[in-house]
């Protein structure tokens, strides 16, 4: 293990501990709710990174995947009257199926065509859930979805849920990290640059693309299931193209392909609108303008931009020092 990696791992451990003690100091339920939403969003972005970040294919249907996970878990919990954990397993299965199904079009259509396909998919899902009134309650939504519980311990407050989601997100982060920085992550990335060359290396690119889509869909569906039991209420009008767009914005702000960036993207995009609330009516437009300017001026993501700026200042400072040193020696 190199020294650099050791530092990285130490950083991550410190971050983990810091995040674990958060609810001990934050007693405000509203903040904890925002934290929980960050954790759920982070799971989605970690998944989206595989498809839009690494293989470079535009997936604008994340809200549809998210909705399928949420409804699958909520419906089975309600109608089969079983634990939400089974719902979570079902969400994983649903994610796997969506991944296999959505992966197929990604073999045939590329670029904007794929973004249109995924938008169409998400819209069909949303309209289906709003129209199956007998089962889903239609546009009224589903209420009183049971929270998670473990051996009789109910995760029914924001603080308790924070720990649960934290563990799940950390696990999701671990898996994503392991995949992205392995030969699989490498082959996903190479697919973005040049698919023909990958195929000529003996790689079944159809299989790899479907794998990437399946990972992405499982993350999305799991996050959806968590969301349903976290909110206790779901409504099809939440799962719009606006939601899909938000997930992609998180990915962009964090930087395409970077796992740590994914987390920062989720944090920034979830918190920034909350911080801009003082602008009242103007907060959404301000937020959008900030994001648009960011997309135009920092195409590698904000995290990267900050890191670069940091490096530049360090360089300038050390250059100055070097100059001063020379001056002294002279």
């Amino acid at each position: 293990m190199t020294k650099k990696m050791k530092i990285r791992i130490a950083e991550i451990i410190i971050l983990l501990i810091a995040l674990l003690v958060v609810p001990l100091f934050v007693k405000n339920n509203y903040y904890l709710l925002v934290f929980n939403r960050i954790l759920i969003n982070a799971i989605v972005v970690l998944g989206l990174n595989f498809i839009t970040g690494l293989t470079g294919q535009m997936n604008l249907g994340m809200a549809g995947i998210f909705a399928l996970g949420a409804y699958a878990s909520a419906l089975i919990t309600r109608y089969a009257n079983i634990s939400p954990w089974v719902g979570l397993l079902l969400a994983i299965a649903v994610g796997w199926v969506i991944g296999q199904c959505l992966g197929y079009p990604s073999l045939r259509v590329k670029g904007v065509y794929l973004s249109l396909t995924t938008i169409g998919f998400a819209e069909v899902i949303r309209l289906m859930f709003s129209n199956l009134t007998d089962i889903t309650g239609g546009t009224q939504g589903m209420r009183n979805i049971e929270p998670y519980s473990l051996f009789g311990f109910k995760f029914d407050t924001q603080g308790k849920m924070y720990y649960l989601f934290f563990v799940i997100t950390a696990f999701g982060f671990f898996i994503a990290w392991r995949i992205v920085y392995s030969k699989w992550g490498r082959v996903f990335k190479s697919l973005r640059d040049n698919a023909e060359a990958v195929e000529m290396s003996g790689v079944d690119i159809a299989d790899v693309k479907i794998k990437a889509f399946t990972i992405c869909a499982i993350y999305g569906a799991v996050a959806g299931a968590l969301y349903a039991h976290f909110m206790g209420y779901i409504n099809p009008s939440t799962f719009t193209i606006d939601m899909s767009t938000n997930f992609v914005i998180m990915l962009l702000i964090g930087g395409l392909g970077s796992v740590i960036g994914n987390i920062f993207g989720a944090i920034i995009v979830t918190i920034l609108p909350e911080m801009l609330r003082f602008l009242d009516d103007y907060y959404l437009i301000t937020f959008s303008i900030i994001v648009l300017l960011g997309a135009i001026f920092f195409p590698n993501g904000w995290v990267d931009a900050v890191v670069r700026l940091g490096k530049k200042t360090i360089n300038i400072i050390s250059d100055k020092r070097a100059e001063n040193g020379k001056a002294v020696s002279r």
């Binding site: 535009m58 992609v248 962009l252 395409l256 959404l284 437009i285 135009i296």
Partner: peptide, 18 residues
């Protein structure tokens, strides 16, 4: 990256709407 182009116009739409 075409992802930026798509997102750019998406966000522009939001700004107009707001």
């Amino acid at each position: 990256s075409m992802i930026f182009a798509v997102m750019g116009t998406m966000i522009l739409g939001r700004i107009i709407k707001e």
